[in-house]
């Protein structure tokens, strides 16, 4: 059984069925692509997985534990973290603080440690800062640690979102169009980085992308959805030649 198992999930918004009977299985360590034209329901799948929405039907299991009814913070604590397509950085915080916030899951300090600023807290704060700087280093953001996150250029904000998600120590990482707004060169670089992060941290990655070319080069397995339903599933090679996929993309574009 995979680390992430979605079975027959459906969610409706009023009359619109955004995701319909979706089944998906991610092997541990996979780099899995979820693609589809605009409005296909990709972000909605992320929102279902992370507890923003609860499915009307079907089940979701993370490492054998049912998470379909849990709140987002609980799911994050269980080891699934995400980035947002419409960037959601903490706007009054610096680049460094954004990542430090995400380290709070691993804190051992109690509220009284915080109020009295005990030695334990001060040592932990030093450790949190080191960890955060290390993560920023991976994304070449350490040089701008003290700037407000919102003052970063768009591409850097996307990379910061990944760094922040990684700071929660996830086992499964969900990336919603991390390369949006980047040119092909930058996108390919980012994909290489994502692959190396997966290897280094032993992650399972689910990647949403609507640029087929980008996802073909990096994902080992790809699922294509359109109008909330799966229309194809397989290796990049198989997907590329699938007439239904070609039609969805040409028809939808």
């Amino acid at each position: 059984m995979g680390i992430l198992e979605i079975r027959d999930c459906t969610i409706r918004f009023g009359g619109l069925t955004a995701v319909k009977n979706l089944t998906m299985s991610l092997e541990r360590g996979a780099l899995y692509g979820l693609i589809g034209p605009n409005g296909a329901g990709k972000t909605t799948v992320f929102n279902l997985l992370t507890g923003v929405y609860h499915p009307n039907e079907g089940s979701i299991e993370l490492d054998g534990k049912s998470i379909g009814r849990l709140r987002p913070s609980r799911i994050a604590q269980l080891g699934m973290s995400r980035t947002f397509q419409n960037i959601r950085l903490f706007k009054s915080m610096t680049v460094l603080e954004n990542v430090k916030l995400a380290r709070h899951l691993t804190r051992t300090q109690g509220v009284f440690d915080a109020i009295a600023r005990t030695r334990r807290l001060r040592e932990e704060e030093v450790k949190i800062e080191q960890d955060a700087m290390e993560l920023l280093g991976i994304f070449k953001l350490d040089g701008r640690a003290d700037e407000l996150a919102l003052n970063l250029p768009y591409g850097s904000q996307r990379r910061l979102e990944i760094a922040r998600a990684l700071a929660t120590n996830p086992r499964v990482l969900l990336l919603d169009e991390p390369a949006a707004g980047m040119n092909t060169q930058e996108s390919l670089e980012l994909m290489r980085l994502i692959r190396s992060i997966r290897d280094r941290f032993g992650l399972t990655v689910l990647l949403v992308e609507h640029n087929m070319k980008v996802v073909m080069g990096v994902c080992e397995r790809i699922q294509v959805i359109d109008y909330g339903e799966t229309i194809a599933l397989g290796s990049p090679k198989e997907i590329q030649d699938d007439p239904k996929v070609i039609e969805a993309y040409l028809g939808g574009a």
């Binding site: 995400r82 009054s92 916030l101 709070h104």
Partner: peptide
């Protein structure tokens, strides 16, 4: 940081645990 994250963006704060 948790307090301020709630003020800045509640959905992102939840997603970060």
């Amino acid at each position: 940081r948790a307090f301020v994250s709630i003020r800045d963006d509640e959905i992102a704060a939840e997603a970060m645990g």
